[in-house]
């Protein structure tokens, strides 16, 4: 079974080149609006999604955005990167099979929520936004897109291991299917040639403590953002909260329960404003 799963990674479409190109262009200090817009327009689905999202209250733009040119001009660098990533990455979540969730839209909503939460935490702890962290967060559960089918087949066994034998959902996936969704996500990240800064938080979002100390930070942030969204039941799936809580999570950034509660309140507000992002996938 595991061979079949790993082989199916090869069938995952390439990661949209547009995202990479735009991110690269925007990393320069003197990017040309027309050049960035030109790259985006080349990708029809990203273009359509960006136009749908750009007037979202989450981005807080005061002008009415009607064209990609407007979006590049008015969104600002951080928002534009986020919009392009969200618009492009959503295609991989459009066909999420059952197993974890009953509708593809639920896993997508969870992914966007974790991405928004990662920025809330990054602002709180480091006082900055973090585009790489945003990408990793949006993709942290991408392994579920493949594994869902197998989880559905073996759901009763997995469920029994979790409820009767005290295994976490991750451990049960590993025992029953042979691989867990985080490791599988890591392999998808390799298939897309992602750097370790994106691959690691995907592969270790349930156990950042297994990474070398120096590489743990963004994995902990994705871990915390994910846990908070699981607690809030956002896009809540059959796996529920059946993952191990790690004692060092709070200490890592000196976070108290009230900090997490405060972040959860902020997330409810962000999600309200970011409805155009979560609504990209509706079924």
């Amino acid at each position: 079974m595991i061979d079949r799963i790993v082989r199916s990674i090869e069938n995952i479409p390439a990661f949209p080149a547009t995202i990479q190109k735009v991110t690269e262009l925007l990393s320069r200090d003197d990017y040309a609006v027309s050049e960035v817009a030109g790259v985006i327009k080349y990708d029809q689905s990203i273009t359509a999604n960006i136009l749908r999202m750009s007037n979202s209250a989450y981005f807080g733009v005061r002008y009415k955005i009607r064209t990609i040119q407007d979006a590049v001009t008015y969104l600002g660098r951080q928002n534009l990167i986020r919009a392009v990533q969200t618009a492009g990455i959503s295609r991989f979540f459009a066909g999420t099979p059952k197993g974890y969730v009953s509708r593809a839209a639920e896993l997508w909503k969870h992914s966007v929520a974790v991405a928004l939460m990662s920025q809330i935490l990054s602002r709180k702890i480091f006082n900055r936004e973090d585009a790489i962290l945003y990408t990793a967060s949006l993709l942290h559960d991408v392994g579920k897109v493949i594994l869902g089918e197998y989880v559905q087949e073996s759901f009763r066994i997995i469920e029994e291991m979790v409820t009767k034998e005290g295994h976490s959902f991750l451990e049960a996936e590993e025992k029953v299917i042979g691989i867990n969704h985080a490791d599988l996500g890591g392999k998808i990240a390799v298939h897309w040639n992602f750097p370790p800064e994106i691959k690691n938080p995907i592969a270790f979002h349930h156990n950042p403590n297994r990474l070398d100390k120096a590489d743990q930070t963004s994995s902990w942030l994705v871990y915390l953002a994910d846990q908070a969204c699981l607690m809030m039941g956002i896009g809540g799936g059959t796996d529920g909260l059946a993952y191990r809580g790690l004692g060092e999570a709070g200490k890592m950034f000196n976070l108290k329960t009230r900090d997490i509660e405060g972040a959860m309140i902020l997330l409810t507000e962000d999600l309200e404003r970011a409805r155009d992002l979560t609504d990209i996938i509706q079924s």
């Binding site: 976490s168 607690m231 529920g240 909260l241 809580g245 004692g247 709070g250 329960t257 997490i260 509660e261």
Partner: peptide, 12 residues
């Protein structure tokens, strides 16, 4: 609901 062995401070 809670996480499994959630010994840290997030037992919301």
């Amino acid at each position: 609901a809670n996480l499994i062995d959630d010994v840290h401070c997030f037992r919301i």
